[in-house]
Design a protein around this nucleic acid. Sequence first.
DNA 1: CCTATTAATAAATCATACAAATTAGCGTGT
DNA 2: ACACGCTAATTTGTATGATTTATTAATAGG
Lengths: 237, 237
Amino acid sequence: MEGGFESIAGSKRSLHVQVAREIARKILSGQLPQNSIIPSELELCEQFGVSRTALREAVKLLTSKGLLKSRPKVGTKVVERAYWNFLDSQLIEWMDGISDNDEFCSQFLGLRNAIEPEACALAARNATVEQRMKLSEIFEQMCDIANADVFDQAKWTSVDTQFHSLIFNSTGNVFYLPFGNILTTMFANFIHHSSTDGSTCIEEHRQIYSAIMAGNSDKARLASSTHLQAVKSKLPK
Amino acid sequence: MEGGFESIAGSKRSLHVQVAREIARKILSGQLPQNSIIPSELELCEQFGVSRTALREAVKLLTSKGLLKSRPKVGTKVVERAYWNFLDSQLIEWMDGISDNDEFCSQFLGLRNAIEPEACALAARNATVEQRMKLSEIFEQMCDIANADVFDQAKWTSVDTQFHSLIFNSTGNVFYLPFGNILTTMFANFIHHSSTDGSTCIEEHRQIYSAIMAGNSDKARLASSTHLQAVKSKLPK
DNA sequence: CCTATTAATAAATCATACAAATTAGCGTGT
DNA sequence: ACACGCTAATTTGTATGATTTATTAATAGG
């Protein structure tokens, strides 16, 4: 059309997701204040240059993430922050650059501190044979990468993500499952292990790995805690 | 129309949510297997007796919860369980009666065990003045209810929910915020504190409360752990 | 036998129309 | 002047059909 809207319509894919992202970022950044009523569907359609169908699907998406709530006649409202689902991977992706990324990573580490040691403990007790085999396989890859002549950062991040995700999946507790994806998203979008070389923390991972394989939940919990302490010490600031 | 579809169309409100719930429960129960392709939009429209608009919004909703993923030409696929967002309140509501509820509550307690002690510790350090005032107010209500002649179960559940939610909101960590809503949902839908009378656990809450107010994070963590141990001992089996 | 083009298909988007819900305001009666 | 109920206007909710795009698969050409 005639605005600066081609930037949205002509982007990558899934129009309603693009629109949702735009609106989400306005909400997350506070540009659309909490409890305020956002413009009506028709206005937003014009503003973004998309059809009502696409816009409505975008609103539905944001509603399911706890950012919006709409009622007939009254309009669509930005709900308060306490209801935003920060544990949604897509929402986390959209946070990029909104708040201070170092602070964001630091807070995420605050979550890992609570979750991961317990997850490791549960995995030590509940991992199935298949999961133990898979973990073994992944750890072997970690060793290979850590011992390689040139350290491949991308590969390391990939297996590191798989390693921690698999642990969440091995807890036997459905509520731990989503953390694997959250961690994957954070690793992919926010955490840039610049100064991290594999050789230093491969030992930490070995501790976690062997404790889980041995079914020693207390040792697994402790090893995970130790690992996270080490990660923390590498954080900026 | 002419099917058994009024049961859906004629229900409460928000057609697409109703449809989403139906499909979600089929997925959660395994009736629609992981990695399988669900029927095309048109077929599903007929099956549920709704328009494509409503159905598509339902699919979008489920996609955002990690249950479905659709691509042109190939169709809409049920993604594997590891990607389902069990930390979504709406999804948790839909779980009712799908799996064994006692087991589900037990697993939830497994999550609380990891999260809450750490949340209490963070709250002790980071709660704002307003949040401390509010917490104080809520705890006073808890005492009133616990000391009343007749124990009002509904009121207790309400303030108990508020108490724990506020702690999550007082951590100063965005990743802890959603747990308040998850807890609220679980309390409202699954946890029926039948044998719980307030007088026994008001002391446990007092320990948590005063530790947070005193800014003693270690004591807060410990008090929360103790409380959860007590809760666990009251679980069935 | 391999590669590139094309055709078929299903979802993605658009446009429009109508329905339902809720609020605000108007009007009437006491 | 006040209370009550009704109407109308606004906004989201649902429906339908047409068009576009993306992906697979088949087909034709090298």
